[in-house]
Design a protein around this nucleic acid. Sequence first.
DNA 1: AGGGCCGCGACAGTTTCTGTCAGGAGCCCT
DNA 2: AGGGCTCCTGACAGAAACTGTCGCGGCCCT
Lengths: 230, 230
Amino acid sequence: MSRTARLFKLMDALRGHRRPVTAARLAGELDVSVRTVYRDIQTLTDLGAPIGGEAGVGYLLRSGFFLPPLMFGEDELEALVLGARWVQGQGDPSLAQAAVTALVKIGTASPKDLRDKIADTGLWAPQFRSASEQPTGLRTIREALRREHKLTITYVDKAGAATERVVWPIALAFFEGKRLLAAWCELRNGFRHFRSDRIVAISSTRTPYPTRRAVLAKTWRREHNLPPDR
Amino acid sequence: MSRTARLFKLMDALRGHRRPVTAARLAGELDVSVRTVYRDIQTLTDLGAPIGGEAGVGYLLRSGFFLPPLMFGEDELEALVLGARWVQGQGDPSLAQAAVTALVKIGTASPKDLRDKIADTGLWAPQFRSASEQPTGLRTIREALRREHKLTITYVDKAGAATERVVWPIALAFFEGKRLLAAWCELRNGFRHFRSDRIVAISSTRTPYPTRRAVLAKTWRREHNLPPDR
DNA sequence: AGGGCCGCGACAGTTTCTGTCAGGAGCCCT
DNA sequence: AGGGCTCCTGACAGAAACTGTCGCGGCCCT
């Protein structure tokens, strides 16, 4: 049996059991060594499968690996399609691609095949791609936001003076064509906003900042008299 | 990228196209050689995937899902959330509401850690609600688009002259703050574009127009040298 | 008839996979 | 506290697979 087929079988085996299964048992079912089972489980978790393993107990597949059937109304579908199309024009290639695949998944996860409906929605959000933009940094920012990592940026202010700073990203706002990064600035020791087109260099330090982003965002919002949430 | 991950990606790629896709194109998307695509397709069909291939045409994933799509990735979630938030600021109350409920549905279908991520995405699309806008007509337009119904509008052109027309809506484009309705105009007997802020009155006739919107859109696109389709 | 494309076989270089052995650490029960 | 069970990881060598590059045949559409 090929490795690929075995991985599918392994998922089925995990899905079949309601109580934790030991690797040894799975090894028996799949007719491979225990070590291989560990490696296969590793492969599946890398793929995103929420497999929980507890020492002394066994493995358990939690829900959430596959997309369950989703049922959207027409309005909701239109909202998602329009939103995704707008995202596609926002200049972050990986985010744009993600918008496409997300729509595809939504289309096929429904009981009825909604792909035609999605393609036929008459709603569009055309982009004015300013060619000068170099949106490569966007991905770095998004990832740093997710992971709560610090960023090193070289920033040119209104006057044209360049500074290098380490900042803690809090939020990224998409205005018309422009983007604004809200962050805690280590250089100024305070909250600052950075226009993305003035960030001339960016790299992630890959080190987390000491405060949770949610907490940071809260004080940031209070300082700027922004609505508490959403 | 591992072979297994590529197989999932290949399934997504196949799902993403409604017309047959050539192996060469898939090879480009997956960044592997064409031969490998053939082999991967072979693997998937062996696993039971309903993939149809015709020489001279391309591959097509027949309906009947043999594998549900994988759960949304972080990128996809961010794209959906950001898109939905932008939609919320576009001034169509029912569409905005739909964006919210769609996100909620996605959230309840996701495992808990993803649900947290939805609320905590640091991406925002603030709206500049121009107070003068009266977006009530949006809903009428969207519904007419869906049902392929005719619309009766009173339109004030640049010069200030008002005309009442019956139009066949084709597409609705969301620009920055403004919206543009593309439609077949019975008054002018040709394709016309209407700025939504110049539409002073609107109502649906609730009668369908005689041509399918897809066909209408096709000629409209050709007349305006727009890209043929996604 | 010709171009575009699926399908497959062969081959060599590379990568990955697999079982075995060894050891560390966490969970559960007594 | 201790013992048993189990998850996890590393190393290693042989085996298996995967991959890209050729070439060829046949089908479909224009």
